[in-house]
Amino acid sequence: MYPRITNQIVLSALEEQAAVVLLGPRQVGKTTLALELADSRPSVYLDLERDADRQILAEPDLYLDEQAGMLVILDEVQQMPGLFKSLRGQIDMRRRKGFRTGLFLLLGSATNELLHQSAESLAGRVRYIEMRPLQLDEVGRDRLNDLWLRGGFPDSFQAASDRASLSWREDFLRTYLERDIPALGPRIPATTLRRFWTMLAHAQGGLLNAAALAEGLGVSGQTIGRYLDLLVDLMLVRRLAPWHENVGKRLVKSPKVYVRDSGLVHALLGLGSLESLLGHPVVGGSWEGFCLETLIAAAPSGTEPFFYRTSVGAELDLVLHLPEGETWAIEIKRTTAPKVSRGFHLAVEDIKADRKLLVYAGERDVPAADGLRAMPLDAAVALLRNI
């Protein structure tokens, strides 16, 4: 087991807020974290995917009234959307009795629906935290290639071999397509959604071309939007927005799209070893997506990520707008040579970046001209964590 950074974030949030909503895709470690918390304090845990646990909450107020003073953990809470109104009353009742923080921990794997339900009912009473797959600073720099190849889902990363890891990810994809997504309501054929997901993996880090995707699948552009919204809501795909503050430039306005876990990219493309990955055309996009997700995860809470591209060739792989107002320009390259293009310098000038980084595959932190620093991924992560 690797110590998870999210554990401490959740502990701190429970000390400050009445309810915490922990979001993340299935199998990312939310339940493991919750059960560790349950062992450390008076708690009750209910898994709302189990009929028996849902029956316990058939009359939620009767049951929850008896749990005052306990941390109530509700797993897969989106399974009971009507519960949120009861939770609001329960939080207010507990506050009157002097219990103000650490009352409820809600786990969910469907963001849009869950956020909509809780935002209306629990406004001012809840904090949202995203739990991501294993991160580089959790597993160590020496496991970087394993993390890139296998992805960060704990069972995939910790598998006994690359073959066993790939088998786990293939089962994960099948379960999502055949059971989990249909359970959320959308009636999408599993084979169609699998093809769509695979097309996104082939184009990892490319601009969204809904027309080309629609033609390839034989569906409408609106249907492509619906498929993409679903995978984004499940935190399996990232739609990275273009930087939009430079109104005087002819900016690219389409978002870039990434399958968020690199291991899933490789499973969708049948890449089970580092050798097969390094020889595949997706290697550059896969490395970019892996670094991008790692850097966004390491950035302070409230950071907004973008990319920047203009019609005249100015381009940045990642722009981080930090909560205190700083803007970081980041180029990502799968190379050992710490060099950036002229387009990088043009883009930095356009957005007036406060810091300029090149994240590359070398091992040294190298200062370059014009305030640019080239560094390996783990050094960039440490820089962001220490803000």
Rank of each mutant, 00 (worst) to 15 (best):
Pro154Val: 08
His280Leu: 00
Asp180Pro: 00
His345Leu: 15
Ile56Pro: 04
Ala299His: 01
Asn386Glu: 14
Glu178Gly: 05
Arg385Leu: 14
Glu15Gly: 10
Pro242Lys: 02
Ala58Ser: 11
Leu173Gly: 03
Ile351Asp: 08
Lys256Ser: 02
Leu14Ser: 04
Asn246Cys: 09
Val28Met: 03
Glu170Tyr: 10
Ala314Leu: 15
Ile181Met: 00
Ala183His: 09
Val77Thr: 06
Leu295Ser: 02
Glu120Asn: 02
Ser86Tyr: 15
Ala183Asp: 10
Leu236Ile: 09
Gly218Tyr: 03
Leu48Glu: 03
Glu59Gly: 02
Glu349Ile: 09
Ala18Glu: 06
Leu46Asp: 03
Gln158Asp: 14
Met375Thr: 04
Gly270Cys: 14
Pro25Gly: 01
Ser12Glu: 13
Arg355Asn: 11
His345Trp: 15
Ala379Trp: 15
Trp168Glu: 11
Gly24Asp: 02
Asn7Ala: 14
Arg373Tyr: 15
Leu22Asp: 01
Gln135Met: 11
Arg238Val: 11
Gln135Thr: 12
Tyr258Val: 01
Thr310Leu: 12
Leu213Lys: 04
Phe84Trp: 09
Gly289Glu: 10
Arg174Ala: 15
Glu66Arg: 15
Ser156Leu: 08
Ala267Asn: 10
Asn386Phe: 08
Gln222Ile: 15
Lys85Pro: 07
Tyr128Leu: 03
Val247Trp: 13
Leu144Trp: 11
His280Gln: 00
Gln27Trp: 01
Glu59Ala: 07
Ile224Ser: 07
